[in-house]
Nucleic acid binder design. Structure first.
Lengths: 238, 238
DNA sequence: GACGATCTCGAACGGTGTGCGAGTGCTTTG
DNA sequence: CAAAGCACTCGCACACCGTTCGAGATCGTC
């Protein structure tokens, strides 16, 4: 370079340990997460991701073995966002409720999760830590030992199942590009035609569309979670 | 043609209405279902499907607008396989239990379902009929009217959530190519290393791998379903 | 200045879903 | 019997995908 002395100073003043400016796995992961959260699973391609980072597509493969591995990383990142309260603070029931809501919120923040989470094992570090804290929470409730796993996994399954369906609905609304209440109204009209010969479904659709989308989905979620926890509570030894 | 007279007779003797032998939407659907059930979602491509039917890939597009539409068709087919008992026969609780087991069995028969069912609405004819019969079943239980939808959908969500995770496990075992018990043993070893610093998870893994894969998954499923139904039952007016 | 490690990346391979338009066989009409 | 029109098939091509390979650039270290 022409101005070698200044360049020397510059580069010396910057952290001398870090070599040239380079891609990192963390950088890739956060960029990928951003694309997933805004454009969904179908919107994430290695080329697009690389473009967002201003690099060549195949450069990514030096930092990440495979697209699937990258997604594994991101899934585990999501598991890391979930709150599992200490049972000493709020007690088991309240803790489980909080856990459920936190799990739901995380999935709503990352609506691509249901599409991928059922196709691979969850054995990343955050998944492990989540499981451990969950076992502590449910262990403190007083279930017979062999039921602790069962209780926890039934709550997780309920929450993930409900919120997966919820995400599907919300994504449809979002992708339609229309205002949410207008979309609900459209849906009602359409469903009423489709459900012409099904009086029960007719009424059901009408009931569901009588409230806000968010309100309806939340009520739905809470109702089932409460019922499940009610049922589980009868198993604890007092 | 050379033998025009005979040809005339031949063609006349065959149903004159049906024209030449041709592809049909049903044919395509059943072939696609077969591929999905044996090779999974990733194993289904339009070219492979066409090859299986002995036709050109793009011929399919005359009968089916799009691959996604085809999958919608197949999903609705699955909904059609599910049993929703008449509440007069077995009562609500037993009926709901049966419904849950039937739903689980259907998903286990079509393990590709969780990967796709959360990405689209279910408004096909079979989905509608299923919903209607479900509402009848849960309606007969004696829930307050506004809770009928909630109760039914919580059961569906629980079952689908649980069985989605179950399918993920089973598919992993299947794809490993090893005998099931050997795979479980491998999993136990691996999980114990991964969960090194998590004593609760350690014990949990050991508990889970102490029984058959099938036995463990079934117990898990039944436990949560029973608990949920217990919780729901307190809502019915006696 | 040379070497080895680290990192980037263009070209290419074998796949994907699907639009287009030409072609083929069958039925119906003149 | 010919001609027209419909129902259906399908090869080609396009734009995209994940990923491999190997050549190159840039660095710290001897």
């Amino acid at each position: 370079m022409l101005d070698r002395v200044n360049d020397w100073i510059w580069t010396r003043d910057r952290k001398p340990a870090s070599a040239r400016e380079t891609l990192s796995r963390e950088q890739i992961a956060t960029a990928a997460m951003a694309i997933l959260d805004t454009e969904g699973l179908a919107g994430l391609s290695m080329r697009k991701l690389a473009a967002k980072l201003g690099s060549g597509a195949t450069s990514l493969y030096w930092h990440v073995p495979t697209k699937d591995d990258l997604i594994d990383l991101l899934i585990d990142e999501v598991w890391g966002e979930i709150d599992v309260p200490d049972p000493d603070l709020a007690g088991w029931r309240a803790g489980a409720l909080l856990f459920g809501h936190s799990l739901r919120a995380a999935v709503l923040r990352h609506p691509w999760l249901p599409e991928v989470m059922y196709t691979r094992p969850s054995i990343g570090p955050n998944a492990m830590a989540l499981g451990e804290r969950g076992l502590v929470l449910f262990g403190a409730a007083g279930f017979p030992e062999h039921e602790v796993d069962l209780a926890m996994s039934s709550v997780m399954s309920y929450v993930l199942g409900t919120v997966s369906a919820e995400v599907a609905t919300r994504e449809m609304a979002r992708k339609s590009g229309r205002p949410e209440d207008a979309w609900v109204e459209d849906l009602r009209k359409q469903a009423e035609t489709v459900a012409e010969n099904y009086p029960g479904m007719q009424k059901s659709v009408r009931r569901r569309t009588a409230v806000t989308l968010d309100e309806g989905l939340t009520t739905n979620f809470v109702f089932g979670l409460d019922a499940l926890l009610d049922g589980l509570e009868t198993h604890v030894k007092k």
